[in-house]
């Protein structure tokens, strides 16, 4: 089933937009992050601690607990990603609207952490989704999350969105789906049986 969707792109005026507009938009984007907390394990508790009164990350502009991926622009993956959970993470990341950012919180999300040798742990969430900031620790202190958010805000301040970057994020180097590329290599088993000479494909 082929779906006709347009290629990812930025709005048309982005190239002609003067620099002050870009600065203002970057400023608005980095100080109004709405975080979709993907709390999976112990790091989620540290995330919650960072959202509470003592280490409040709301003073950085980060609003906690978006109701769903479609209302969020920052995803904080905090905790061990098991192989069973991995498709859900990918799907929820896909369902976030552009522009979106990911913070990988804790060593399990960075690289598998203490479970690097497990049969069922995804060794780092960056095998699934593109990560912007890694916060190391097991678990990282809430202050580390605050520093990670500030680092992300610095990154957004210096960022310049472009159509090329968005397309590259969605594997823009791939112009066809894998099915279209591999289809000529496969033959229909029925056709293979009826052909006398066993045509090579």
């Amino acid at each position: 089933m082929k779906v006709e969707l347009p290629m990812p792109r930025l709005g048309l005026a982005n190239n002609d937009a003067p620099l002050p507009i870009k600065i203002v938009l970057n400023w608005g984007r980095r100080y109004s992050l709405w975080v979709f907390n993907f709390g999976l394990a112990c790091c989620a508790i540290e995330f919650i601690a960072a959202s509470m009164a003592r280490h409040d990350f709301m003073r950085l502009g980060v609003i906690p607990f978006a109701p769903g991926p479609r209302q969020a622009d920052l995803m904080v993956v905090s905790g061990t990603v098991s192989d069973k959970m991995a498709p859900a993470i990918r799907r929820l990341y896909d369902q976030m609207p552009e522009p979106k950012y990911v913070i990988s919180f804790g060593s399990c999300a960075n690289s598998g952490g203490p479970y690097w040798d497990s049969y069922c742990v995804t060794k780092g969430v960056d095998t699934l989704i593109p990560v912007d900031v890694y916060v190391p620790g097991c678990p990282p202190r809430p202050e580390a999350l605050l520093q990670g958010i500030i680092r992300l805000q610095e990154k957004i301040a210096s960022e310049s969105l472009s159509t090329k970057a968005i397309r590259a994020k969605y594997a823009g180097s791939r112009r066809v789906t894998s099915g279209e590329v591999t289809r000529p290599l496969l033959t229909n088993p029925q056709a293979d049986a009826t052909l006398a000479g066993g045509e090579q494909s």
Binding site: R9, L25, A88, L92
Partner: peptide
């Protein structure tokens, strides 16, 4: 302003109904 400035990247998975990642 949104029409001329916002990024747009529809993918098949993005357009599916939200049901907690499944």
């Amino acid at each position: 302003a949104r029409l001329v400035l916002a990024p747009r990247a529809p993918t098949v998975m993005k357009l599916t109904t939200y049901e907690c990642g499944v």
